[in-house]
Computed example of a mutant assay.
Amino acid sequence: MGLAMLCAILGAFIGMLAAYACGKYVGYPFINKYGRFIGITSERWEKAKKNYTDNAEKTLVLGFYIPGIRQISPYFAGISSIPFRKYFLFSLLGTILWTVPFIVAGYYVGDAFNVNPKYVPYLGVVFLVIFVLYVTIKYFKKRKQMSKS
């Protein structure tokens, strides 16, 4: 269990550091160039940046438990120029608080659930289809509302 925990912590943390570096060095030019295509105006960007920087510590620690936030938070931290030392410490804390409970829970509760590994890819496809349907429905609802106004 110790090696699994170490590998999980290192894997998640190194991923967070790599995403921070991408956000810091590539993110802002990318947002400036392509942000308008996905609805990121300079006003929206400044508002989002202020909200993020005001809550960066909480987002880095607790954001691991929120899908989507976990993935975008390090990019946003890099783009928002959160100091590296602050990012490093809070990201490490969040990584440990996220991975350790899952490894421990899996170790002690894992025998209670028998999931045949050959069905896991199908489960991933089901979740992908649900996600695509959700995004499509949301897009058409928004488009319908925009056409009414």
Rank of each mutant, 00 (worst) to 15 (best):
F90G: 10
Y34W: 06
G2R: 06
S73L: 05
R85K: 13
K86A: 04
K50Y: 02
I38D: 08
K33Q: 09
N116I: 01
A21W: 11
P117R: 00
K118D: 14
F37G: 12
G68M: 10
V135W: 06
L62G: 11
Y28A: 05
G63K: 08
F131P: 12
F88P: 15
T41Y: 01
T136F: 02
Y107I: 00
A4R: 02
F76H: 07
F127N: 15
L133D: 12
I79F: 09
K138L: 04
A77Y: 01
Y25E: 07
N51F: 00
V104I: 12
D54I: 01
E46A: 05
V126P: 15
D111R: 15
V104S: 07
V104W: 01
A77R: 00
V109Q: 15
V132N: 14
A4T: 09
D54T: 06
Y75A: 03
S81Q: 06
M16S: 11
T41C: 10
I96L: 08
W98S: 10
A18E: 06
G23H: 04
R70A: 02
Y20I: 02
Y119T: 13
M146E: 09
G35N: 06
T59W: 00
K142L: 08
E43I: 07
K47G: 09
N55T: 05
S73Y: 01
W45H: 10
A105N: 04
G110F: 03
F64A: 07
C22I: 07
M16N: 13
S80G: 09
R143C: 00
R70P: 04
I40S: 10
I31H: 02
P67Y: 00
F30C: 14
A112V: 11
Y65L: 13
D111T: 14
P117G: 04
I40M: 10
G63A: 04
P83F: 06
G106A: 06
K50P: 11
Y107Q: 12
Q71Y: 03
L3V: 11
I72K: 10
K86V: 01
L123V: 13
E57I: 13
M5D: 00
N51L: 03
F84Q: 12
A48S: 12
T53M: 12
Y122K: 08
P117N: 06
L60F: 11
Y28H: 07
D54V: 01
K86Q: 12
V26E: 02
F90L: 15
G11F: 02
V100W: 04
G94V: 00
P29L: 02
A19R: 01
F113Q: 11
Y34V: 13
K33V: 05
I79A: 08
Y119L: 05
N116E: 14
G68W: 10
K141L: 09
P121M: 03
Y25R: 04
Y28P: 04
K24W: 00
G124W: 14
K50R: 08
N55P: 00
S147H: 03
F113Y: 08
Y134C: 00
V126C: 13
C7L: 09
F30Y: 06
I82W: 07
K24A: 11
K118V: 15
R143Y: 06
M5R: 15
V104E: 15
V132Q: 14
Y139I: 02
I82D: 12
G15H: 08
V129G: 03
K24D: 10
K33I: 09
K118S: 15
L133A: 12
G23L: 00
P121I: 04
I69C: 14
N114G: 10
K49Q: 15
S73P: 00
E57C: 10
R143Q: 05
I137S: 05
